[in-house]
Design a protein around this nucleic acid. Structure first.
Lengths: 225, 225
DNA sequence: TGCAGAGTTAATAATAACTTAATATTTAAA
DNA sequence: TTTAAATATTAAGTTATTATTAACTCTGCA
């Protein structure tokens, strides 16, 4: 059985362009969704969680640049590939796009071949392996089931606890600074006190019953058995 | 409303009839495509993969009957609903159509109401999820009839309830995010509130009487016994 | 026409998750 | 050894998320 098809969301107000992209990317095996303005793009992006989003710079409701900014401010889209679609003559806009977190830009008009190869290249370059089951010693962490088992015994962790443990455990031995932890688990928009991390660490230690998280005083925490 | 809009392909050589059908079926929420002869019908059917095809019996290039035969010989169209469109006076042709794999026939002329209700009825009757019976522990889930049995006792679920349960149960243990659930069960075109999921989950739990759906707070739901 | 069921929403209640604050303990440097 | 800084622990306070219920719409159907 092969992977689920990669999902691509196309946002452009011109039906011709939507159809052009949709046709060519579908033929390439991508699962394609479309939106006709900025608001719809945001709404669908949230729902569909696409792997790649193509945003026309000029769109009704919200411009591609705005949409890009809004998406990038949400941690759910930190790994989503965003491509801006610009008319070749509107010179500065692609730069603006890149500054706002886009991964690439494509100028209109574009040939089907170039389009497809650019998109393929982006996936090759940027797509990260999906999260998988983590096995460290006797501990197994399964993000798909949101379950942690120790010696075969299943232990349920709350969301933040789970994410924190996963972060630490996916690179055993490496020390994570408190800042890093806050960024990865809480996101950089959220502000919480430092004690919050401690409390979560404590709960994990308590629930797992195994001493696998080491404090590195003045620095952070690391996972090791 | 459910799923992305259903696609209907209309093949008839008379522009008036095409427009009549297109207008009435579009108004009903279907996504309508048209073709004006048999060859075009075949070509578009392949490209569009419609859920339902209306074929006029008398068409240039290839007759509806021929098109029907050709489509049915391809596995990609084995589940496509095919309706033949016949003039009332040409008596034997609908029988020929049915012999050749059509699911129904509609006589011309036809009123908009009747047309729409016939098409709707066909979808209700024929477009079933063609998936297999699922057995998980003491629970057995039968997609053919939207029936679930627990300890041999049959319980009937509504469509959405069933689809939701089926989604969760076909991968026991795996957590489905609310987004995923919305996508899979409601389709990405439909916008419904988050509480809707809860209500359906509740009904399933209530009807089954077995605690098999676990809430993963802040994440989603999973099926497990 | 009105009933029945499916589906949705909205309002409120319940609960689990998360955060904070206060206090205790540990750690490492002076 | 002392001391200050950092972390651990605990309990309590807040918030966010889900559960529940009831009402409302829509559609099909007797």
């Amino acid at each position: 059985m092969d992977q689920p098809a990669r999902k691509v969301l196309i946002a452009d107000d011109e039906p011709d362009i939507r159809e052009f992209l949709q046709y060519n990317l579908s033929a390439e095996g991508y699962e394609v969704f479309t939106a006709k303005d900025g608001d719809e793009a945001l709404e669908k992006a949230k729902r569909i969680q696409p792997d790649l989003i193509v945003l026309d710079v000029m769109m009704p409701k919200k411009s591609g640049v705005e949409v890009c900014q809004l998406l990038r401010s949400q941690s759910a889209f930190k790994d989503t590939i965003i491509v801006m679609l610009t008319a070749l003559n509107d010179d500065g806009s692609h730069i603006k796009g890149l500054e706002n977190g886009a991964d690439d830009y494509i100028g209109k008009p574009i040939s089907p071949k170039v389009l497809v190869s650019r998109i393929n290249a982006l996936f090759r370059r940027l797509s990260k392996p999906k999260t998988t089951v983590l096995n460290v010693g006797t501990i197994s962490i399964n993000p798909e089931q949101y379950i942690v088992s120790v010696d075969g015994k299943e232990i349920s962790l709350a969301k933040k606890e789970f994410e924190l443990l996963y972060l630490l455990a996916h690179r055993p031995g490496r020390v994570f600074l408190r800042n890093e932890i806050l960024n990865q688990v809480w996101g950089n928009e959220v502000i919480v006190g430092d004690r919050t991390i401690d409390v979560h660490i404590r709960k994990i230690r308590q629930k797992l019953g195994v001493d696998c998280i080491t404090t590195v005083k003045g620095v952070g925490y690391k996972f090791e058995l």
